[in-house]
Design a protein around this nucleic acid. Sequence first.
RNA 1: CGGGAUGUAGCGUAGCCCGGUUAUCGCGCCUGGUUUGGGACCAGGAGGUCGCAAGUUCGAAUCUUGCCAUCCCGACCA
Length: 492
Amino acid sequence: MSKELTTRAADYSQWYNDLVIKGQLADHSAVRGCMVIKPYGYALWENMRDQLDRMFKETGHVNAYFPLFVPKSLFEAEEKNAEGFAKECAIVTHYRLKTDPDNKGKLIVDPEAKLEEELIIRPTSEAIIWNTYKGWIQSYRDLPLLINQWANVVRWEMRTRLFLRTAEFLWQEGHTAHATKEEAVEETEKMLHVYADFVEQYMGVPVIKGVKTANERFAGAEDTYCIEALMQDGKALQAGTSHFLGQNFAKAFDVKFSDKNNKLDYVWATSWGVSTRLIGALIMAHSDDQGLIMPPKIAPLQVVIVPIYKGEESKSTIDEKSAAIIKELKAMGISVKYDNSDNARPGWKFAEYELKGVPVRVAMGLRDIENNVAEVARRDTKEKSSISLDGLAAYIKNLLDEIQVNIYNRALAFRNENMREANSWNEFVTMLDEKGGFISAHWDGTSETEEKIKEQTKATIRCIPLDNKLENGKCVLTGEPSKQRVLFARAY
RNA sequence: CGGGAUGUAGCGUAGCCCGGUUAUCGCGCCUGGUUUGGGACCAGGAGGUCGCAAGUUCGAAUCUUGCCAUCCCGACCA
């Protein structure tokens, strides 16, 4: 993998901007940093979304939809949450335009049409959802309330990074209400595991499950759980979060319920989300110099068949042979494209589908048909083999499974190689500069130390792993006593 | 908002320092033909407010000033 492609997210954007997933920032200054997802990229997102949605439903959740606009008074109700997002909000102040009397053909904001109360374009939906929940929850019989929303949100970041931090992005946000603290904590952890399962099993990206420190916690949460992934350039990426919100939002929006003993109490809350940032994670975790590598389970296209023909006659012979295989593949639920277009030559098509990361490519020419075989190439290893046409579909189905496992194992091996323990400050800094990756080190548990480490090295505590073993040691910066190691990394 | 760089066709660029024919080259695009087992070749063609505005000059892509935008580094970032 060349340096040019792996050094930073910016390098990736150069690359897929031109060639591959066709994600790009909108090219008008007023909406810069908002992304455009072209059809192939969107098909990937749809596959990811559909699978996640299935998993949410299996865990008892239902979908709903809430407004894009959040009145300022609702937004400010939960103080910490509002404060946390205040610096990156887009705000609607007017509701009408009019023609400019001084400038024909131009429009101006009608000063008469100023809103009495400004509307915040949701950077996240806790406020508007909890304001709604207030009317939905009276009794323990109304609980738990397990709702998910697929939506867009806007965060007016000073600096955007394609897929990883865009001004507008697509995501899902789950918002649940529970009768007890225990149940809410259980939900928070359950959804973290759902995320981890999805990212590992479907996207083929290994993650570390953990808890954020106070500094990195979601504004308004009691605890923030996260999954952290490692990109090929050695930087960490937060791939998903699940928050235990305590009774903070219930108190802010006055959401109370009567329990079985008719005792009134505030409900306990969680929220959890993953976004189109996962597309960025997928690209940076698996791609190589030939382009994307799509995990078969969520690939927009799993198999492409490229016929190699000379003249119309050979074309129809191959068309016929292919049709049977395509039918068989489709019956197995495998997505397949037969590209017999005249627009491009085979070599061009090979390169194109490699860029797009299609897991399996089948090439078939008269030479192959005479021998009753086809050439099957896998994207992950670029190996090519000649496979008998009898049982080809079954072979491909099997190969897709193998590729799925292989790319996960490859990413896991990379992650493990880049997970190191540092036992001194010197070691810590050297590892960070020379190798990157996750560094497991002792920390004295104070926000001040965490802040100092960040200032000096740009490394942050990614998480305290869930299954962390306790181990006495000394803080890598201050030498103060520590009970466990935490995971540091430079992150996106 | 601070520091640095850049803006020339859909994309990538040369020319700018030292002003002077019709603005360079590659990719892509269109037409015709030959091709087709790893990004084909030949011939022809289309495509430009040289970021915007003002200034200097006989003459500006080139010099000056202002503005705008983009990228990188910071600040910021769930």
